[in-house]
Design a binder for these strands. Structure first.
Lengths: 209, 209
DNA sequence: CTAGACTTCAAACGATTGTTTGAGAATTTC
DNA sequence: GAAATTCTCAAACAATCGTTTGAAGTCTAG
């Protein structure tokens, strides 16, 4: 976490990500963050302006790439001759899996992401909606095309459940622990496969299958 | 929230539940809680001893009844001549639905519950595991009997996803808003039905169906 | 080499945190 | 109705919070 080879700004972002994942935004203090980053306390306000802006930058650093990856994967999936529901789901899930495999704090970030759902923080919601709302809208359109037999309301119900399950699974909650012989990558890829098949089954249920 | 007809202790628990749901355990201060409860600041430490113990009592007040209801429903479901997977799922989900319909803060509590998942707080996890772990173990056994074709590891994968989706859906996250003409009860019952069918589809997927 | 910009630092700011105190009010017990 | 117990209250406790300050350090451009 110290890692003095990184710049002050990067070390703060890394330490903040880790501590926000473990103690929440209110629960992690700037003194804990700067101590973990081996940086002076005032550096946060110098480089980011405030704690709130630091939180936003923790998101921006990862979400820019994550959502770009999702859109890329979606475009690729829809370019296939006969794109399936599973392809659209995988386009949403797999980039998040890749992120969670990032050596430098990616797995911490997906837990931060899960916290953002739990926090009903108005300021944070606006920031996320303003910057990344268009991605979710594109996926909603793609899902609607894959599931034409579902009413709009019904579709939103199911997508909401899928988004929740995804957030939960990616955050590594719950009882599942990987077997000791299994690599992190194997573990995560199995997780993504399970989630895609599980979500597809739930989304299709009641339709013609 | 004020509701002076309730005792000091009950008013504190109600206000704490509401504020923990909205701002988290670290984010809600005892001064905010006691102000909302129209109670003196010192009353929390007098009646509960500390903020941590107050948090535990917020859980205990609801979880005793919720988990008793789940075990009752599970017993009833397993007493049927041919219990189905959907029956076991409903036994887990429906009591939570009932709780979320409780006029006096039930819907706030399910959001508190979702926060407890997000918090990796060791103390809280131990409290929940010590007091209610046996309920989850009974359900795991029942699910295993309904899905004998699934390996133990595979089953745990899927149950974890179901638990996450349930927590998420019950916490009323996400984009779904009920139509203005729809009652809270109608809305929640539709939610539970969707969730049971969705979860059942995902749990069975890949088996004989 | 120097002037200027950028970055780090220890120290302190006022505000807020959970908790404790001891006096007083309210209630219960006999 | 007096004594004892339970509860409420304003006030203060030390600790910690996010933020600001101004001086000292480091770096870069001319």
């Amino acid at each position: 976490m110290a890692e003095l080879r990184f710049s002050t700004k990067q070390r703060i972002l890394g330490a903040a990500e880790d501590l926000f994942a473990r103690r929440g935004f209110a629960g992690a203090s700037l003194r804990q963050v700067t101590a973990a980053a081996k940086v002076n306390l005032a550096a946060v306000n110098y480089h980011f302006g405030s704690k709130d802006r630091l939180i936003e930058e923790v998101f921006r650093r990862r979400l820019d790439e994550l959502n770009a990856g999702r859109l890329r994967a979606l475009k690729q999936a829809l370019a296939k001759p006969e794109p399936k529901l599973e392809d659209v789901l995988a386009a949403f899930i797999k980039p998040a899996l890749e992120l969670s495999l990032d050596r430098e704090g990616g797995s911490a970030f997906v837990r931060v992401l899960a916290r953002a759902y739990a926090e009903h923080n108005e300021r944070l919601r606006k920031f996320l909606s303003d910057n990344y709302g268009h991605v979710l809208r594109e996926f909603a359109t793609a899902f609607a095309r894959q599931l034409p037999q579902l009413g709009k309301e019904e579709l939103y119900w199911r997508l909401d459940i899928v988004a929740g399950a995804l957030t939960y699974a990616m955050a590594d909650f719950g009882v599942i622990k990987r077997r000791s012989g299994q690599s992190e990558r194997e573990f995560r890829e199995r997780a993504a496969d399970h989630l895609v098949r599980f979500a597809a089954a739930g989304l299709k249920e009641g339709s013609e299958r």
